[in-house]
Nucleic acid binder design. Structure first.
Lengths: 239, 239
DNA sequence: CGAAGGCTTGATAGACCTCAAACACAGTGG
DNA sequence: CCACTGTGTTTGAGGTCTATCAAGCCTTCG
């Protein structure tokens, strides 16, 4: 579903994907899947739950680089890049599927179009990084958080994990701070400000948004960078 | 040279690369090569000069997403992603080579390994984004700028465009501000602080660094994310 | 010589951070 | 059933980094 949200697949390709040998693993929240410097020999597909990529900096602080939703293969890059430049960790109880590099390589050899689809996915990943860079560099706390919520809703909707006006976003305010480059205290105050303004309510890991158009405006959110094939459908959901 | 700095190529592959039909174009500084929303039918290889990717935000402001050095193909992604999510512009007089998408696709079909090399390049690109995100989110002005200078020196050295203790970095302080998420005034003050501390001198588009180890320390710079094959050689140059 | 762009400097303001403590809540064990 | 603990959230006060505004200076170039 994730792959088909960004590209069309033939039935043989879909079959080949389902035929991949996988090792399934259930883990709790806050489990490191891959660490910085690792050289994995398999990729990790997130089947259910929630995860993030992050880079640690000195004295226990870190920057969260991206959030990962079911359907993502956050360490796909390990196929072509030797050592991981960042870590990957779960943020909620999750189910993982590990697929050996050699099997993916074989798959790409047999179905070059699937290789292109996966390449495309890594490119959209990069587009999300770029959008986050704009937020980190040039947007204030309120806009950053609103933007993030819009993005996560759209991405989760693409894999069927969002309601029309709410969704489950299992992160703490500290994790939100690590993702937005803010302090936890300031995240808290900004969330309260957004709540008081009636723009969104984030409580106990669920986000409620009464009016997406309003939140998109305050988040300066333009979904073009996500390159979804079915944005029409998605905005229908959102409307 | 750029591609070989990140992967090994066979002689046939090298020949095929040189045989690609290209349209050469010389442009002045501050020329937009691609604009946000464009759907190019060719990719742009930077042969000489200097360029950047950027995303514009309201009221004339922008965030520079990356700097591009000779050998880079900044819009390689347009092969697989429909619309550009950002613009690309030159920062100095540059020579560009445009290669049609269909020719690159054909090349990849004939030499799948070259496809993998190009994929790898887009992945390293993404690694640079991630490192910048850490800077934008979690590092102060001084560290951000020092880090950027270390990165640019290493990348330029990889394509033979840096001296041991200096290099040409043709950007204004305003562009530096757009890249680091700071204000031009603060960039100026930080540059002077670095200069006074004897850590680096940035004047008239050339950077002089008397002691790389010192600058790396203040920039918290670890080159692992650049995935250079010959980092040994590079640090020799730097030493 | 004048104009334009880039650099430098000063003063003031604001966004955000840090420290510190209190509060709420869920899970645990006695 | 109730203290107890730990994690996450909320609140207050003060401080710092960085932004903004505004002006002057320097260099380049036509």
């Amino acid at each position: 579903m994730k792959l088909e949200s960004i590209a069309e697949l033939s039935s043989e390709e879909r079959e080949a994907l389902f035929a991949l040998p996988m090792r399934i693993l259930d883990v709790t929240a806050d489990t490191d899947i891959v660490r910085e410097g690792d050289r994995p020999s398999e990729c990790c597909l997130l089947l259910a739950g929630f995860a993030c990529r992050y880079k640690a900096i000195g004295n226990g602080r870190r920057q969260i680089i991206s959030f990962q939703t079911p359907g993502d293969i956050p360490d796909l890059q390990s196929l072509f890049v030797d050592a991981m430049d960042h870590a990957i960790a779960t943020l909620a109880r999750s189910r993982l599927a590990f697929i050996r590099h050699q099997d993916i390589r074989e798959l790409i050899r047999c179905f070059p179009h699937l290789g292109a689809v996966l390449w495309r996915e890594t490119l959209i990943d990069a587009a999300i990084f770029r959008e986050w860079m704009v937020g980190l560099g040039r947007r204030n706390a309120c806009t950053r958080i609103a933007h993030l919520v819009c993005e996560m809703h759209m991405r989760l909707a693409a894999v069927g994990l969002a309601h029309a006006d709410s969704f489950d976003f299992p992160v703490t305010q500290i994790e939100l701070a690590d993702a937005t480059g803010l302090s936890p205290v300031h995240v808290n105050r900004t969330l309260m400000e957004l709540r008081r303004a009636g723009k969104m309510t984030f409580r106990g890991s669920t986000v409620i948004v009464p009016d997406w158009n309003q939140l998109r405006a305050t988040g300066e959110f333009d979904p073009a960078y996500l390159q979804q094939r079915n944005t029409a459908t998605l905005s229908d959901i959102a409307a």
